[in-house]
Design a protein around this nucleic acid. Structure first.
Lengths: 99, 99
DNA sequence: TATTTAACTTTGAATTTCAAAGTTCTTTTA
DNA sequence: TAAAAGAACTTTGAAATTCAAAGTTAAATA
């Protein structure tokens, strides 16, 4: 049990970061505003959580233009995917304890 | 997705409290030292997390004696069980998003 | 040229977390 | 019976985290 808990990653303890990662697992990329609207966050709050995940190299940023409009898209990195999957597996193991 | 996140209970965001609840779901009751040793926590830290869960009425305390030794046991309350199960279900739903 | 929009950064206050030390009560042990 | 030890805390204080709100910058549109 203790070993399960140790597999939970600190970066994913926050429900907001859990939400960001979940969205990025199911959507190849998402832009700032999509995340912001979906998760109903203020700019600053979202930006700081994104930064926290970026610092861990769990997500990456791709800045492009759509026509002439700047567009910042976020995507999950391979490490991020791995880390998040490990985290979810640990949660799954916790859930299975009940059975 | 947003609605899933809203079902995550703040009290269970901490891995320590997640651990306490998990232990109490699979063990009818547990005493202070069992939790402390299993989760490798200091007295103070454990006590404050227990207090946080008790404040939400998610766990209860039963003080007894084993022989002449005082023994404090913790157990999960029906509300606690419900809340924890809802939380795990929300996590399960998050996990299932990937499929 | 003025306004708007995107995507931040900064600031600061509130909350949370944790370890360490102190406390109380009881039980052993010398 | 006095001293030491153990259980289960409480208190303290520092560090880290979280969040909203306001400020910033650069480009785009009116």
């Amino acid at each position: 049990m203790k070993s399960i808990l140790l597999k939970l990653h600190k970066a994913f303890e926050s429900r907001i970061r859990l939400g960001i990662m979940s969205m990025l697992v199911v959507n190849e990329t998402l832009d700032f505003n999509a995340l912001k609207e979906y998760l109903e966050l203020t700019d600053g709050n979202l930006a700081s959580h994104l930064k926290a995940l970026e610092k861990e190299a769990f997500i990456g940023i791709k800045k492009t233009f759509i026509g002439k409009k700047p567009n910042t898209r976020y995507y999950i990195t391979p490490q991020g995917k791995k880390a998040f999957e490990d985290h979810l597996q640990a949660l799954q193991a916790l859930i299975d304890l009940k059975e």
